[in-house]
């Protein structure tokens, strides 16, 4: 059950970042360059394979114009 919940959160996170990026017509590479990380890191975050530090979360939010809750908050 816990695994299922974690998977749902990971998938949701993936979709939210990807959607926010797509809305700005931004590639993974462009977002990576903007926040100062590699493209593989952005890809891993979107895939739910890597949990970024709060510092990187905030940088991503700043670039995508979203709040921490909107991109990384738990689903209701």
């Amino acid at each position: 059950m816990l695994l299922f919940v974690q998977e749902v959160v990971a998938i949701a996170r993936n979709v939210r970042i990807k959607a926010a990026r797509a809305a700005l017509d931004m590639t993974q590479k462009a977002l990576a360059d903007a926040v100062g990380v590699s493209r593989q890191t952005i890809n891993a975050i979107e895939q739910g394979e890597y949990n970024p530090t709060i510092k990187l979360c905030r940088a991503i939010c700043r670039v995508l114009g979203k709040s921490l809750d909107e991109l990384f908050g738990e689903e209701e």
């Binding site: 100062g36 990380v37 590699s38 593989q40 890191t41 891993a44 890597y50 970024p52 530090t53 510092k55 990187l56």
Partner: peptide, 8 residues
């Protein structure tokens, strides 16, 4: 390295 690469 970025944070994920560093962790890896």
């Amino acid at each position: 390295l970025d944070e994920m690469q560093n962790a890896k």
